[in-house]
Simulated assay, not measured.
Amino acid sequence: MSATTAVEIAVDIADPAWQAAVPGLEELVVRAAQAALASAEVPNGPAELAVRLTGDAELQALNLQYRGKDKPTNVLSFTGDPEDAFPGEPVSLGDLALAYETVAREASEQGKSLADHLSHLIVHGTLHVLGYDHETEEEAAEMEALEVRILSGFGIADPYLPGPALEAGAGFLKEA
């Protein structure tokens, strides 16, 4: 079974601003996550990924609780534990949470559509739950190249091309 058909993607829209701002929101989220899943190894058998579209307040609380940073962020990824699955039940690949206000602000600052920036962050977060990271320059180069390839399949420009936002340190590796 391919990665795109073996993984159930649950989308929880907790902040209605997402739905008002992004036409076809749930389909966009599923499509971006499936593209990332199809590009990497996923466990055999049924699996699931949960995506929560919420706001800055919730992301700030999660960021403080899990990362010790008392500020909102664009996306947080939480890797699932295959050992937690009951026999015969889907394996949880993990959870993603995204903050509407931060993602919308970044898209505006970077001159991108909200839909394109959201697609990028879904791909980015999904790759994190699959084990990709950007803690070193080598890891960042590998992960970013994969993101660029996946996004190009949707006609989305390279999000890492130099521009005002990246020059100001808004890249993932240089998070403030």
Rank of each mutant, 00 (worst) to 15 (best):
G171M: 00
G24L: 03
D81R: 10
A10M: 14
A104V: 05
V11T: 09
G94C: 04
P72D: 06
I150T: 02
I150G: 02
D70V: 07
A168D: 00
Q65N: 11
L53N: 03
H120R: 15
Y132P: 06
T79M: 06
L121K: 12
L49D: 04
G24S: 03
A97D: 09
P159G: 02
T126D: 06
A97V: 13
A168G: 01
A170N: 08
G131W: 06
G169Y: 01
E142Q: 14
E147Q: 15
R67Q: 13
Y132V: 09
P72Y: 11
E139C: 07
A17F: 08
A170Q: 13
E106D: 14
A32S: 14
V42H: 08
I122F: 03
A85F: 05
L114Y: 05
P72S: 14
E27C: 07
P164R: 15
A6W: 12
N74L: 15
A20W: 05
H128S: 08
Q110I: 05
I122T: 01
Q60R: 12
T5E: 15
E27W: 08
G55N: 05
P159T: 00
E167S: 12
D84R: 12
A10R: 15
S152V: 03
N63V: 04
A20Q: 13
G80N: 08
A176M: 12
D95I: 09
F78A: 11
V91C: 03
D84K: 10
V103A: 14
L93R: 01
V7P: 09
G153D: 02
E139I: 00
A107Y: 00
F172A: 12
Y160D: 00
E106Y: 12
L76H: 04
T126L: 01
R31W: 07
A97H: 09
A17M: 09
K69Y: 11
A21N: 02
Q34L: 00
D116N: 14
E58C: 06
A40G: 13
V129C: 01
A115L: 06
A104D: 10
R52S: 11
E147C: 10
M143T: 11
A99R: 11
P162G: 02
A33F: 01
E58R: 12
T102C: 06
G88N: 05
G24H: 02
E26K: 11
F86D: 12
D15W: 01
L173E: 13
L130A: 11
Q34W: 01
A85C: 02
A165F: 13
G24F: 00
G169Q: 00
N44M: 10
